[in-house]
């Protein structure tokens, strides 16, 4: 490891970390408020989590255990390389287990396993401004936040209902934090919005390109915006995870072949693996029968003709419409 001896612990120099920590502290003091910070160049392109990496680098210590997920998965390129990065520059322990991690950097998901006090969830945020696509002027959106003029946010939801008959926003669903600031929860599916509400874990949001940090301290109210006659709803799936049989979790659609074969599996890979490796429990149910219990490799190895014998309906398991 002599080749990285010239790097400071966790890549960023101490002055930069102090600057970022100040922004984080301010963000925690004003839940949901976007604090500008002097975002640094990171050894990765914008859009790959430069904001999240800077936040993680500023709060990580030698005793921390880091977990990195990308769309819920621990084994995707982004997650693997960020995990390797911190292993290299901070020499910290890494894990894929939600329960044992102290810092979880995430892109687009909140783990299914409930978070506990003392854990920190770091979100990678592409566009921190929830009003951006409605009001392009930054000067104006900042004024709207300052004066709490959030009528425009409902204009977007109104448009959804007018066009689709329901609130069709499924990710980056705007929330109001502690009754004051409207915040973009980053492009997590709205399925995860209720998990943010009064979460015992600290939630930090870093947007590297847009140079903003914001935070939701533990046990803070996070309420999804809605209309009285069109209340907020999360996605529901009409079938369980094809691998572990889990219900009431967020599922990803996996294409199996080019004949329309597909299946729905847990987006949270750690959650799914835990359930499959654990001994069958009556609480979990469904593991022994049907597709439950069959591992991904077996499923993928199954000849497509076998799958075509009983092709699932297209769109099955998509959000309830």
């Amino acid at each position: 490891m002599t080749d990285i001896a010239t790097y400071n612990f966790a890549y960023l120099d101490e002055q930069t970390k102090r600057m970022i920590r100040r922004a984080i502290l301010k963000g925690i003091a004003i839940p949901g408020y976007q604090v500008p910070f002097a975002s640094r160049e990171m050894p990765m392109p914008y859009g790959w989590g430069t904001g999240g990496v800077q936040v993680t680098a500023s709060i990580i210590g030698p005793d921390d255990v880091l977990k990195v997920i990308d769309q819920g998965a621990d084994d995707t390129t982004n997650a693997v390389s960020i995990r390797a990065f911190f292993k290299k520059v901070a020499n910290v322990a890494v894990t894929t287990e939600t329960a044992t991690a102290t810092i979880i950097q995430t892109r687009h998901r909140i783990p299914e396993h409930p978070l506990t006090a003392g854990q920190v969830l770091v979100f990678q945020v592409p566009i921190p401004e929830p009003l951006r696509f409605l009001e392009p002027r930054e000067t104006e959106t900042r004024k709207m936040h300052a004066l709490e003029e959030y009528g425009l946010m409902h204009v977007k939801l109104y448009e959804d209902i007018a066009k689709h008959g329901r609130i069709a926003t499924t990710y980056a669903y705007p929330v109001k934090v502690e009754g004051r600031y409207v915040m973009d929860p980053s492009p997590t599916p709205k399925f995860d919005n209720p998990k943010m509400h009064r979460s015992p874990a600290l939630q930090l949001f870093g947007a590297g390109r847009e140079k903003r940090i914001y935070a939701v301290p533990p046990f803070t109210d996070v309420v999804s915006l809605d209309f009285e006659d069109h209340p907020f709803e999360v996605q529901t799936f009409d079938q369980p995870c094809a691998l572990c049989g889990a219900e009431n979790v967020y599922l990803d659609e996996v294409i199996l072949d080019d004949h329309g074969g597909h299946m729905f599996v847990c987006s949270d890979t750690d959650h799914c693996e835990k359930r499959r490796s654990a001994p069958p429990s009556p609480l979990w149910g469904g593991r022994a029968e049907g597709a439950g219990g069959r591992d991904l490799a077996t499923t993928l190895a199954t000849p497509s003709s076998a799958l075509r014998a009983d092709p699932p309906r297209m769109g099955e398991g998509k959000e309830a419409e």
Partner: peptide
Amino acid sequence: LRMTVSAGANVGERLMAVGDRHYGRIR
């Protein structure tokens, strides 16, 4: 006007800005 949102939303924007949160009424 807000040229990128529907006529209904244009008319309803002020109502939502003053706190009306009932879609049916706004419409």
